[in-house]
Amino acid sequence: MKSFLSKINQADNLALAGKMYVFFLTLYFSNISHHYFFGFIALLIIYGIIEKEFIFKSVFWLSICLLILPGLISKLNITANHAYLTFYVAILFLLAAYFKKIKNEILYKNSKFILGIVMGFAVLQKLLSDTFMSGSSLAYMNYGGGFFTHFKRFFPQNQEIINANLNRISEQTNGLDGLQTTIEFVSPNWLIEFDATLLVWIILLVEIVFCVMLFVKNQYVRNSFFMLFMLGLISFRIETGFASLLCILLLLQAQNDKPIFKLAYIAIFGLFISMILTKLGVH
């Protein structure tokens, strides 16, 4: 274990994070890029895996950026946020590979910037959304079984409630008359009563604390919070694509911290990847 931690500690940050990213991209590129460029990205990834030094070269990351970009542009309004984040992380590695002398500083500072901006805008979007602030969007997701997906087996009654709710939605959306009626749901409860309005404030508080934690120097406090956040995310809503990229950024912000934290982020990343591979994740 000590020698393994030592290897992680000595590993080049760009190499470590870059390999995690390439692994992720291998699974995701068909969702992100334009179909005209599938073949090129696949070849680039294969070349990057075989020619290990290629991952340090700016031309590799520039090619990744240029091959992802058409997919983003062609589906600007329907592309999910993890596609944008994939593009941004590729740019981050491009900058690190190009400015080799200061690459660690680039990776460290920019990863914090990106994490802060992502969470900051997430908070802002929520504050501006009436549907979120009233608890409606969270309640709707809960009615349809959007939360605690893999814990449903421990709550068989909830599975029945969720199925009944989904059937009600299906019947209501069968015809125009149905859309003009009001249907009633049963809210699944998880150990405690599900309170959507309370959950709104909990989520906002957690995301604000996330932003604040980026400035906390104490590595134990900071990384413990981030690890709990990621594990909470797995339990609550398994957004495996987006969370995998967050793991890469969290690894980079922890580059000056104890190797055990880096190992933790790599392990959580591995968990998310396994969920993507087994289709246990949302996507």
Partner: peptide
């Protein structure tokens, strides 16, 4: 809000 790079997931239905 869910799409377009604004990080607004879970804000609306």
């Amino acid at each position: 809000r869910w799409k377009g790079g604004g990080f607004g997931m879970y804000t609306d239905i």
